[in-house]
Design a protein around this nucleic acid. Structure first.
Length: 471
RNA sequence: GUGAGCGUGGCUCAGACGGUUAGAGCACCGGGUUGUGGCCCCGGAGGUCGUGGGUUCAAGUCCCAUCGCUCACCCCA
């Protein structure tokens, strides 16, 4: 913003400073003009707003909203633990190769959405766009499959994708994701789906479940080639979007909302007709599992996932209250992925839930986070009371109470107001009178009862006594 | 990457056909109660009307540009 100001004027003036006084004078004048110039330029600069704002698509989660996040996380952890899952935390940065190999080179995520850059030694690294790849990398790297035949893991944290932000979609977003590694049993698929279902139920939000099977590496190619062939016959009669998708992402075409396209697709090949025997059995066994647990669902043969690693079971929890980004949670089976990442061939299934979308739903229909509250507000009146009050507040905090205190020397009325705002259970009032008598006033903020409490001789004993009264 | 809508105190928004000191509610601070919260009443602080330019005697209002936000396409959690 000072970029166009004349440069080097000071040096010029200084280096020739021995020559003549008026030259020095001219140099100083030049400096002054340059300074005024840059100030004027600064004042006229259209980017003169000096406030630094968050990056596009990156959002602050303010304290009020954090309470909702904490509630979600607490309920989620509780449920995951009930199902025998353990938390794992992996780094946000990984080698770019990890995602290229797992998600797929040709996917939108890898092609144009990743935050990828070279580190200081020129190695290509990427901020994770999703969680599964990292968890599997860690699983393989530490040989977790050796410790236990079936591992149940979950993780929570930020993910990054460079997309145009819109409702329910940010560049930094957060997921809770869950992985079961080491079993290809279809009942595990049903169990994992049931767990997600339970989480939505306990959060009080209504979502519908859609399931599908994408087949495996032996039967999907056949379906794919039939589909591509079919679409080739439709060429020219499809909507522009579909004409494009026909070549880039054939499965997506079947999901088109255009009526003319839909009419054409009546005769399109359907994945369920092309599943191999094992895949079909797997799917029906999973359906049986869902029925056994009374999990309602619908089969959506057009459901397609944007990550290449999915095989067989895929599923999505959708809501019509989210705008265009209707999926709150989604996942599927990814048998073969560990092998692709250079590890042993271990089957797996998992899902991810988008936190921001969950929060959006909860704000509309879900259960509210508890209001925050504290145990006690210590109100000190007058200079003499402040130091003892400060010591008492600390002693109570050491004993485990949630205590607030005001250091600004405000009026009692103002301090009472603060206590009310903080939802304090009690207020302890100490002023000159109380100091003199050695007795403070403990006010119950709910019943308005006020009772005298002797000021501490021994701080610790006193604090212990107070805890008994208040708790 | 493409398209549309919107930018006025911290938040939600009013501001007729351009016209003189730019308003309200919520929130905040103080007072009414010489030391007692939520309700009520009174007062206060807080805005270069996103930014730059243009038209005009006069621009929050009209025009152009630019930046930002939002929603949608695409794609995904």
């Amino acid at each position: 913003m000072f970029g166009n100001a004349p440069q080097g004027h000071f040096l010029r003036g200084a280096s020739q400073g021995g020559e003549q006084a008026d030259q020095l004078y001219l140099g100083m004048l030049g400096s002054l003009i340059a300074f005024l110039w840059s100030v004027a330029e600064y004042l006229h600069n259209e980017d003169a707003d000096l406030t630094v704002k968050a990056l596009k698509g990156f959002k602050d989660i303010l304290p009020d909203e954090v309470r909702t996040w904490q509630m979600i996380e607490q309920i989620a952890r509780d449920i995951f633990h009930r199902f025998g899952f353990s938390e794992i935390k992996t780094p946000v940065l990984e080698k770019t190769e990890l995602f290229a190999r797992s998600i797929g080179e040709a996917t939108d995520i890898v092609e144009k959405e990743m935050y990828t850059f070279d580190d200081r030694h020129g190695a290509s690294i990427t901020m994770r766009p999703e969680g599964t790849a990292s968890v599997l990398r860690s699983f393989i790297e530490h040989g977790l499959h050796v410790q236990r035949p079936v591992q149940r893991l979950y993780t929570m944290g930020p993910m990054f994708r460079y997309e145009r932000p819109q409702k329910g979609r940010l560049r930094q977003f957060h997921q809770m994701s869950v992985e079961v590694l080491g079993s290809d049993n279809p009942k595990v698929d049903a169990e994992v789906i049931a767990m997600a279902r339970l989480l939505f139920n306990e959060l009080g939000i209504s979502v519908t479940l859609e399931i599908n099977s994408l087949g495996c590496r032996s039967c999907r190619p056949l379906f794919n080639s039939r589909l591509v062939e079919f679409l080739k016959e439709c060429a020219g009669r499809l909507c522009p979007d579909c004409e494009r998708r026909r070549l880039t992402n054939p499965l997506r075409v079947l999901d088109c909302k255009n009526e003319k396209c839909r009419a054409l697709f009546d005769k399109a090949p359907v994945i369920s007709d092309h599943l191999c025997d094992q895949c079909r059995d797997h799917f029906t066994d999973m359906e049986d599992g869902l029925k056994l647990l009374d999990i309602p669902y619908s089969v959506n043969p057009f459901m397609v996932r944007g990550l290449d690693y999915y095989t067989r079971t895929t599923f999505e929890f959708v809501s019509n209250a989210l705008g265009a980004q209707s999926a709150v949670g989604a996942g599927g089976r990814y048998d073969g992925l560990t092998k692709d990442l250079g590890g042993p061939d271990i089957p797996g299934i998992g899902f991810a839930i988008g936190m921001e979308r969950l929060v959006l739903l909860i704000s509309q229909q879900g259960k509210n986070a508890h209001a925050t509250s504290i145990d006690l507000f210590v109100a000190a009146l007058g200079k003499a009371a402040r130091e003892p009050a400060f010591k008492m507040a600390h002693a109570l905090r050491v004993k485990g109470l949630q205590v607030a205190i005001d250091h600004e020397g405000r009026s009692l009325k103002s301090q009472m107001k603060q206590a009310g705002r903080l939802n304090s259970g009690y207020t302890f009032i100490i002023g000159d009178d109380e100091l003199e008598k050695g007795v403070g006033a403990l006010r119950n903020m709910v019943t308005h009862d006020q009772s005298p409490v002797t000021l501490p001789g021994d701080l610790e004993d006193w604090a212990a006594k107070m805890v008994k009264i208040i708790k």
